[in-house]
């Protein structure tokens, strides 16, 4: 089982909750991308590097700044020895860490988001496919917003899930302080072939019709909830379903449970909700509203 192998390889090296690792792997498996939102120093970069290494995938990193241009990501054509030569940008990696995404200008952000959506970049009329699997981990710092360009909802919608790593508990922190360099001696436990094969498997995981109805009911609840200006989009619901399928596959199941759907909903919906100003001022949060929906909508289980 891929999850156990990865978890075992990362144990004691990366300060990560199990649920976060599961969701990150699930996002990778269904072809989604991840938004890591947390304060600095919680191990976002280490996690991305370690994940790429244990999965046997190539790693790329881009530090976003306001003066970064799209070509700095995608690459450029250089004139060399009488001809134009294609120089690949750092975006051509299987696991791409985009640090502080909201520091880049909207123009550069949208170049990245286009690559995430299409799995390719187009330059000078030529299309260049990105390597497969292509998995973006973009980070955002939620506390320092000066000089940033917050992602609009339409662009946040491109991310399958938003996760927060959070501070580790003291025991894990102590182990990390006393332990070795987290990336030292970290060996791959799988490769791109297996990841791609699992990606194909995700689509075959069964989702009972009533679970789809349940998902629609959750979305309906949020869309009709007072204080919600923008509820989950069709793309969001599709990604919740895929994420739930991937979560089930990671557990070795060929079918989705209500719990998979709930975990996927918690991870995939809050960053896509747009609240009314009054609702925000009254203390409502997207996470709180998602929990409210999950508590209010009956799960499809025998009515006992």
């Amino acid at each position: 089982m891929l999850y156990e192998r990865v978890q075992s390889a990362l144990r004691g090296r990366v300060l990560l909750r199990e649920e976060t690792l599961r969701l990150a792997l699930a996002a990778l498996l269904f072809g989604g991308h991840l938004l890591l939102e947390d304060v600095p120093g919680t191990g976002k970069t280490t996690f991305a590097k370690a994940l790429a290494r244990v999965l046997g995938l190539s790693f790329g990193r881009i530090q976003m700044t306001p003066d970064l241009l799209p070509q700095d990501l995608t690459g450029v054509y250089l004139y060399r020895e009488g001809s134009l030569v294609w120089e690949q940008g750092p975006i051509f990696a299987q696991v791409l860490l985009v640090d502080e995404l909201n520091r880049a200008t909207p123009r550069t952000q949208s170049a990245l988001l286009e690559a995430m959506g299409e799995g390719q970049v187009t330059l000078e009329g030529k299309t260049h496919p990105l390597p497969e699997p292509f998995f973006v981990l973009a980070t955002q710092n939620p506390v320092e917003e000066e000089g940033t360009f917050p992602l609009p909802v339409a662009q946040r919608d491109r991310f399958a899930a938003r996760l927060a790593l959070g501070y580790p508990d003291e025991k894990a922190l102590l182990e990390a302080l006393r332990g070795q360099d987290p990336l030292e001696g970290l060996a791959p436990v799988t490769d791109a072939e297996e990841v791609l094969a699992l990606r194909r498997e995700v689509r075959r995981v069964r989702v009972e019709e009533e679970l789809t109805d349940y998902l629609l009911a959750l979305a309906r609840f949020l869309r009709g909830r007072e204080g919600v200006r923008l509820g989950p989009s069709p793309r969001a619901l599709l990604q919740v379903e895929r994420l739930a399928q991937a979560l089930a596959l990671l557990e070795g199941r060929g079918f989705v449970l209500p719990e998979d759907l709930k975990a996927a909903f918690r991870a995939a919906i809050p960053h896509r909700l747009l609240l009314a100003l009054e609702a925000e001022l009254s203390g409502l949060t997207p996470e709180g509203l998602v929990e409210e929906a999950l508590e209010a909508v009956p799960a499809p289980v025998e009515a006992g």
Partner: peptide, 11 residues
């Protein structure tokens, strides 16, 4: 009793 919103594993 199982709560209506509770899944089988949670229950």
């Amino acid at each position: 009793p199982r709560r209506p919103a509770e899944g089988p594993v949670e229950y």
